[in-house]
Structure formats: C-alpha cells, structure tokens
C-alpha cells in the first residue's frame, strides 16, 4: 500500500509527462492483463497451493481433516498400488514415446508429397486424434474384447490362438498402449508434416548434388532439420502419457487386478472413490515434481546435444 502511495505522490510531485504516461500505461496494461492474471491465479496457482496444503492432511474432502505432516508421503513409499501405477505409466512412456516419434516422422515423410487425394490421406491420420477419447475407448473396448472382439476373431481366422487382451492382467496395459498410440500419434504426424514443409528445397537439392542417397538425405538433412519439433513432441508426448486417464476410465477402470491403473487414474480413485483426498493430493504432487524433473532433464539434454552439433 505504502509503495503505491509513494508512487502516486511522486507522480503528482514531478508531474512530468513521461512519468504520468508511464502510470497511465501501467494502468492500461493491467486492465488488459488483469482478467487473464486472475484466471491464471484462480484456476492454477491457488488450486496448486491448496492441493499442496491438502497433501499434508488426512482430508476426505467431507470433513476438515487433521494435519498429518509427511505421513502421506511416507505411506506412498510402501503402497503397492502406487508402485504398480508407476510401473504401468513408465511402461506406457517407454513404449509410446519412441514409437510415436518414429512412426510420426515416417508417416509425415510419406504424406509430404504431391499425389492425388493427399488431403484425404492426411485427414485419415488426424481423425483418431480429433475423435473423443470416450468414443475411442468404448469402440476399442469392443474390438479388443477377449470373447467377442474383432481382433481375437481375426486371430482365430488366421489359425492363431486367441489372446486374453483387455481381460488379461499381463496384456491389458499393452493393449491400452496400442489404443493410446492410435488416438494420439496423428498429432506427431501433423507437427512433423508442418516442419517438413519448412525445409527449403535448396538444402535437399544440395545434398543430392553432393551425392547423398535417399537414406543419407533423411538421416543427415531431414532428421536434424526437424530436431526442434522432435524435442517439442517428446515433451508434449511425455506430458500426455503422464496425464493418461480418459481411456483407462472408459476401457478397463484400472482393472483387471490393477493391471492398467495409471498415476492420474489412481489419484482420481484415491480422491473421489476411496475418500482419501489428502493422500491423493500427495500422489498428485509426486507426479507434478516427477513431470517437472523429466521435462527439465529432457530440455537440458536436447540443448546440450544442439550445442555440440
């Protein structure tokens, strides 16, 4: 308060035009930025602070809850379901991320040419990404059903043994990874496609003149040119995986036997079905810090690689 007062009095004492204009500019600026600032504060920072406070209590969101200090975080260390959720999410990350980057680039290269109906092909790859996860989940739930699904029907027709798929604790997470890949990798394709179209023809032609074959051009011209997009997609994909929730909700609800519980799904279960919101907030915070560390590490790695090149 005092500093505003001094600022104001200073402004009135030396009422030189630039000072007054600066104040006017400031007010105008804050009038524009104010609503957005309020929204960011209200919908991100305040809930984050509240969740942090919650993670030190045993609140069930119904009654006030007691302060339990670090008890929730200590319990995490020994919680087998949390460990399983970590493993499931890590498996998804390891399988999905490289696959989506490689397949995304490969498909983008295929789609980056002038042939008849290219617009249609490009649309085909983007449609799953635009489709709602709920619809995709329900549809895929039917396709990968153990007893009535199309997929097992196809296997049997080909003379192969039917698989457990979504009903099998050892296969369910793999099936979910496939579904997740199908719904998300269209995004990598679009981003890579945009990047490929930015590569100037001269560079590719120069490589050809230097005697580079198709593979060498791809390896030494195209891949480095889209490197920034690769970093972006890796970070984006990582966040996507760590936030994975909707398909779990619509295909398996974390089952069978916790085989498909992901971290965010577990947070939801803890907070809204088991009435342990304080513990859920602690899990959410571990996820938050973990995500931050992974992203910063990934960015640093990418920057260092960029520097040595």
């Amino acid at each position: 308060m005092t500093s505003t007062a001094t600022a104001l009095s200073r402004a009135s004492r030396h009422s030189t035009p630039p000072d007054r204009r600066r104040l006017a500019d400031n007010i105008t600026g804050w009038t524009f930025a104010g609503p957005a600032t309020l929204i960011i504060l209200g919908f991100s920072l305040v809930p984050m602070a509240w969740a942090l406070a919650l993670s030190f209590t045993d609140s069930d969101l119904m009654s006030p809850g007691r302060n339990v200090g670090l008890e929730n975080y200590r319990a995490l260390v020994a919680d087998p379901v949390f460990h399983q959720a970590l493993r499931n999410t890590a498996l998804l990350l390891l399988l999905y991320l490289p696959a989506s980057l490689a397949a995304g680039l490969a498909v983008a290269v295929l789609l980056n040419r002038k042939v008849r109906g290219i617009g249609f092909y490009r649309t085909c790859f983007l449609v799953p990404y635009v489709a709602s996860a709920t619809a995709a989940g329900l549809l895929m739930g039917y396709i990968f059903d153990r007893d009535f699904g199309l997929f097992n029907g196809l296997l049997v027709k080909l003379g192969l043994p039917a698989q457990g798929l979504l009903s099998s604790p050892s296969q369910a997470m793999l099936v979910l990874t496939v579904i997740f890949f199908w719904t998300r990798f269209g995004f990598s394709v679009v981003i890579y496609l945009a990047a490929l179209q930015e590569i100037s023809k001269e560079v590719v032609e120069a490589a050809a003149i230097d005697g580079a074959g198709r593979w060498a051009t791809f390896r030494h011209v195209i891949v480095p040119s889209v490197r920034h997009m690769t970093v972006f997609l890796a970070v984006w994909g990582m966040i996507d995986v760590l936030q994975f929730f909707d398909l779990v909700m619509t295909t398996t609800k974390g089952g069978p036997a916790n085989a498909t519980v992901t971290i965010v799904y577990y947070v939801w279960q803890l907070a809204f079905t088991y009435f342990t919101a304080g513990y859920g907030a602690a899990v959410a915070y571990v996820l938050f810090v973990g995500t931050l560390v992974l992203i910063v590490a990934g960015m640093l790695l990418a920057r260092r690689k960029g520097a040595t090149r």
Binding site: G141, D145, R146, D147, F148, L166, S167, A172, M249, T250, T251, T252, K253, G255, P256
Partner: peptide, 13 residues
C-alpha cells in the same frame, strides 16, 4: 463371460 469393461457390457450381452 468375464467383463473387464466398466459394467455395462454384461447387460448388452
């Protein structure tokens, strides 16, 4: 029939 989907499939069957 072991129903691993969220509940409703049994009824549909």
């Amino acid at each position: 029939y072991l129903d691993s989907s969220p509940a409703e499939k049994g009824q549909k069957l």
